[in-house]
């Protein structure tokens, strides 16, 4: 049965049975200790709390530009973004962490988020530098962050207890953060399905590979990545190759910790051109929640438990900062 053709009646029945199941859920959840979106965001924001800012990846800049699609992906997905031509986007470059004033060069994880609007649809993309997660579900991810906050010993113990982190650790050992947002490769991490007109699904991951000149970052202050990026943009657009990796039958698209073999088919969809940047608070990305589960027709989510946890966690972070902003939290705050 195709997911999209579930009848109204079945959906109604599903909701009704879920409601009954949820009535009984306090009985079953008592034993399993499931982390909630609120607990997750509490952990991310930590003790130091920055009202009005994103709870994760709090420091960054808004960017905008266009994607020049070569049309090669349109045979696998009917998403408008893959049609040959130029598709504008707004986006955000950021570093991981809860501190909107943190030093950038030492941040181990950098991120690139994009948002395309095509007709009535929107596609949000939120990418990080690591190609995989260390763990396979949000509850283990929570414990991983707890360990990170506790220090090196706790992290060592955590990874020892989680052999599924092997691919992540191998990547981490081989990776050195660059001194420019323009020199990083950004990964979808989680897998999605491309869906074509005949409703055929293809599991994919993607990455954006830098096509920019290597150069030394002359800045050393805490805003060094932003300053370098602004300087670089004055000389011309920053470009990335948007590449899709196609899973084979034996690859598990629902496991975000497992890399797919390097010989999997790769298809380049076109080039991303970043042409402008803005400070994040006055920029056009500030009000947007880059929930990566806002998808256009032609792209659907896999059952990956970490991917499916992202919507609720992003929504909780967005709700908190929206309320704080309404209460005036950012009125005195300068862009940073």
């Amino acid at each position: 049965m195709k997911y999209t053709s579930v009848s109204l009646l079945e959906k109604g029945f599903y909701v009704a049975s879920l409601a009954v199941a949820l009535l009984l859920s306090p009985l079953t959840q008592a034993q399993t200790e499931q982390v909630t979106a609120q607990q997750f965001v509490d952990l991310q924001q930590g003790q130091a709390h920055f009202p009005g800012f994103r709870r994760a990846h709090a420091k960054g800049i808004c960017v905008s530009g266009e994607f020049k699609s070569n049309g090669r992906l349109s045979q696998y997905s009917n998403a408008t973004v893959f049609k040959a031509g130029t598709h504008p986007f707004i986006g955000r470059l950021s570093i991981a962490g809860n501190n909107p004033h943190a030093a950038e060069l030492t941040a181990p994880v950098r991120s690139f988020a994009l948002s395309f609007v095509t007709g009535a649809e929107r596609w949000n993309i939120a990418m990080n530098t690591p190609p995989v997660m260390a763990v396979t579900n949000p509850h283990d991810f929570y414990q991983q962050i707890v360990a990170l906050k506790q220090g090196k010993e706790a992290v060592k113990d955590f990874f020892a207890e989680h052999p599924e982190s092997a691919d992540f650790l191998a990547w981490k050992a081989s990776y050195t953060p660059s001194s420019s947002f323009a020199l990083e490769t950004y990964h979808s991490i989680n897998a999605f399905y491309l869906v074509d007109e005949k409703a055929q699904r293809q599991a994919i991951r993607w990455k954006m590979l830098p096509l920019n000149e290597e150069s030394k970052n002359p800045y050393t202050g805490k805003d060094a990545l932003q300053q370098e990026f602004a300087t670089r943009l004055e000389k011309g657009s920053v470009r990335f190759n948007w590449q899709f990796i196609f899973a084979k039958q034996e690859d598990d698209e629902n496991n975000p910790a497992k890399l797919w073999p390097s010989n999997r088919a790769k298809v380049d969809a076109g080039e991303i051109f970043i042409t402008h940047w803005q400070p994040q608070l006055s920029g056009n990305c500030h009000a947007l929640n880059f929930d990566p589960l806002i998808l256009p027709s032609g792209v659907i989510a896999t059952e990956d438990p970490i991917l499916r946890a992202r919507s609720a966690a992003y929504a909780e972070s967005y709700r908190r900062r929206a309320k704080e902003q309404l209460m005036g939290a950012l009125e005195e705050t300068a862009n940073d």
């Binding site: 879920l18 949820l22 859920s25 499931q34 982390v35 909630t36 979106a37 609120q38 997750f40 949000p138 509850h139 589960l293 989510a301 059952e303 438990p305 499916r308 946890a309 919507s311 609720a312 966690a313 929504a315 909780e316």
Partner: peptide, 12 residues
């Protein structure tokens, strides 16, 4: 009430 709290795969 469930979907604003849950991080489970059925949330979406």
């Amino acid at each position: 009430l469930a979907m604003v709290r849950a991080l489970e795969p059925w949330q979406l």
